[in-house]
Amino acid sequence: MTSRALTKPQTRGLLAKRLRFHIVGAFAVSPGVAAFCKSAVAEPRKKAYADFYRNYDSMKEFEEMKKAGIAQGVK
């Protein structure tokens, strides 16, 4: 029967080593996430707003709300 001694775990400097690894990873991944959010969320939202307001008639909308009784402060 052979018994091998287990190696001691590294405890000194472990936090600094792990933080260094995760900070580098965060800086490497964040531009990709930002680009994805811009292309998947921001640009379609800006396009939807532009499409909506391209043909939006505020006076027509106001008259419809007035007829429906939503705008009660006006006659």
Rank of each mutant, 00 (worst) to 15 (best):
M1D: 14
M1L: 14
A5P: 02
L6E: 08
L6S: 08
T7E: 15
Q10D: 08
T11F: 15
T11R: 13
R12D: 11
R12F: 09
G13W: 09
L14C: 02
L14E: 11
L15I: 11
A16M: 08
K17L: 12
F21V: 10
I23N: 01
V24C: 02
A26E: 00
A26W: 00
F27Y: 06
F27S: 03
F27P: 00
V29G: 01
S30N: 06
S30I: 14
S30M: 12
V33W: 10
A34L: 11
A35T: 09
A35P: 01
F36G: 04
C37G: 13
K38H: 13
K38G: 11
K38S: 08
S39M: 10
A40E: 04
V41W: 14
A42H: 10
A42G: 10
E43G: 01
E43T: 11
E43S: 03
P44R: 04
P44N: 03
P44L: 04
R45P: 00
K46Y: 08
A48E: 10
R54H: 14
R54Q: 11
N55G: 13
N55K: 12
Y56D: 07
Y56F: 15
Y56V: 03
D57A: 10
E61T: 15
F62K: 07
E63N: 15
E63S: 10
K67T: 02
K67M: 04
A68C: 02
I70A: 05
A71F: 10
V74P: 00
V74I: 14
